[in-house]
Design a protein around this nucleic acid. Structure first.
Lengths: 348, 348
DNA sequence: TTGAAAGCGATACCAT
DNA sequence: ATGGTATCGCTTTCAA
């Protein structure tokens, strides 16, 4: 494809060599193998066999660009998380690849880096590449780019984060965690164990998952008549280390008893700061964290945390997407979180 | 692209609407902006402006399949690590995306999952999609798939792991860590601090990076006249937890003084097992780990570890690849590791 | 069961 | 500066 001393083998080369027409070659190449082993196409089995042999001998490979240009389908789906290397997403990607692969689709990943402009560029590029469908975790401000894709009638599934204003009946699939429930679960566990001054620290990203976890926290506090104690602190990726440091000092001095951290990165940050300062959990501050982390089990008291069904999130999102590509209506799937108890939220 | 109620806008639609030929539209669309802002194409600036406006108004998007079919270039590069969610790789992907993006390339990721068959499928798929270049971390047994790509004259850069039998003069770029040096560094640090019974635990993956880190360990031991103490234990991803558990007990009972773990996952595993058993480092066992890990700083004595220049690995690999795509000869780049000292390798 | 031929959309050669 | 058109490789009628 690059140099000239090796011409790319085309369907025509195969046809010539096998003494048949290009049509026939195309038929054979695209025929699906049926359970009984026979080829599902109107071609003489012997001819088919010969074609296959020749194709193989010549090292033929279908030119996807041509096929895609011709029939407007690429058998490719794009997956765009905010960060490809994020631990939460890491636990999902594997499942997405597996299911897609089983169904004959190739998966391409690229990250938006929590940046609306970048998301737009990435989606543009994918669109231009003729992807058949898209699984995306919206970033704040990136709604328009996603709507563009939808308007192009490319099936879209929102993963992990919702986008307001787009319901499933508008042709957008959704696979989300019940984040309100997750926030409630975390908070209620602390309340149940006697904590009253429970606060929360979160990112100000403007994404649904975080705001709903916060909503769950508020609801739980409200229902326990602790609404006066509600206090949510916000930070950003860039300032997290500094802000968390300040917050911990402040919290301890104000007599805060427990903390809900709605992402694994915040959980890890809080835990490391506490360790640095010689604070222990739950004695100095009870903690309920989020997602899995290697460090949760490294504390004297292991860390209680909310667990997301990563496998289901991955599997369901591809399945929904592929069914949409195949013409089925979109679905909205809400998965339930679980809580894994550790010592960090033990009774006071 | 899916439904029929919204026809895809083509270059011809733009041409008609702007009252010019398709040729002109193509010129304008593909013109690069020059530093002075002018368009680098033989078109009347006013006409160009009009074309751009129309294209914009109509929501025109280039059909990549068509362009790619026509000129055999897709401006897309593929990156295939063994595991997209691996922490080491996570620290690299970001840089790859950034540099590629700056140079006008889109990056698609997919993982081989440390599986030769899967690697073959993924590469086939990428090849069929007409990628312009490939950055890959070879897996054991996957050499042939990679050679296939090379034979197709698609530029390839090996990242992190070498492949024997392919030197840079054969058209394969390489961006690797000096793994022998890394193994030496780690071992020498321990030797310098008075440790003599130093062992190593590694994966039996048959990949160059690990075997060279082992070679470095052996060399360092040899040079310090400690070769009789050399002892390398092997495990697999699947058995690692069990094997490491057994090994630690065994090592302690045999009076092993220090351990070199050549991947972050093994380092983490050893550290957690030690914690579970109430063992501390370096008192019960000195440790030199590899790569960054959140848990290295969580021990009473922080963990000494080898640091890879992730940014350079990422940046250099794309830069080399793109220069190869543009016709430059391949390069072999070996980067130097560093060691970050912690308490886990302190003097006995 | 087989084949001829019309496109898919963009590019680039060749004219004007 | 602008335009006509053959072509990339494949799929898919339609006809034989």
């Amino acid at each position: 494809m690059q140099s000239s001393n090796m011409k790319r083998i085309t369907i025509r080369d195969v046809a010539r060599e096998a003494h048949v027409s290009v049509t026939l070659v195309s038929f054979v190449i695209n025929a699906k193998k049926r359970p009984d082993g026979s080829l599902d196409c109107p071609v003489n089995p012997l001819t088919a066999k010969r074609v296959l042999e020749v194709a193989n001998r010549l090292g033929y490979r279908r030119n996807f660009a041509a096929a895609s240009l011709r029939n407007g389908k690429s058998n490719t789906i794009a997956v765009v998380p905010n960060d490809i290397s994020n631990k939460f997403f890491a636990g999902i990607s594997h499942w997405i690849e597996d299911v897609a692969h089983d169904k004959g689709y190739t998966v391409f990943f690229a990250s938006s880096q929590e940046n609306a402009t970048r998301l737009g560029e990435v989606l543009d590029s994918f669109l231009a590449h003729g992807i058949d469908g898209l699984i995306v975790a919206p970033v704040s401000g990136g709604e328009q780019s996603i709507v563009n894709i939808i308007n192009y009638h490319v099936p879209v599934v929102l993963l992990d984060r919702d986008m307001s204003g787009y319901d499933d009946n508008k042709g957008v699939g959704k696979v989300l965690l019940d984040d309100v429930e997750a926030g409630k679960m975390a908070t209620n566990e602390l309340i149940k164990n006697g904590y009253k001054k429970i606060e929360m620290i979160s990112y100000s990203l403007g994404i649904s998952s975080l705001s709903e976890r916060e909503e769950g926290y508020r609801k739980a506090m409200m229902e326990a008549d602790l609404y006066d104690n509600v206090n949510v602190h916000y930070t950003t990726y860039a300032d997290a280390a500094k802000d968390v440091g300040n917050f911990i000092s402040d919290a301890i001095s104000r007599g805060v008893e427990a903390l809900f951290t709605p992402t694994y990165s915040l959980s890890e940050l809080v835990l490391s700061v506490m360790r640095e300062r010689g604070l222990s959990t739950p004695k100095d501050l009870a903690i309920v964290g989020f997602d899995e982390s290697d460090i949760y089990s490294l504390y004297e008291n292991t860390v209680t945390h909310i667990v997301q069904p990563l496998k289901d999130l991955g599997v369901k999102s591809v399945e929904t997407l592929i069914s949409m590509i195949e013409g089925q209506p979109s679905e909205k799937i809400i998965l339930k979180p679980e809580i894994k108890l550790g010592g960090s939220s033990m009774k006071r």
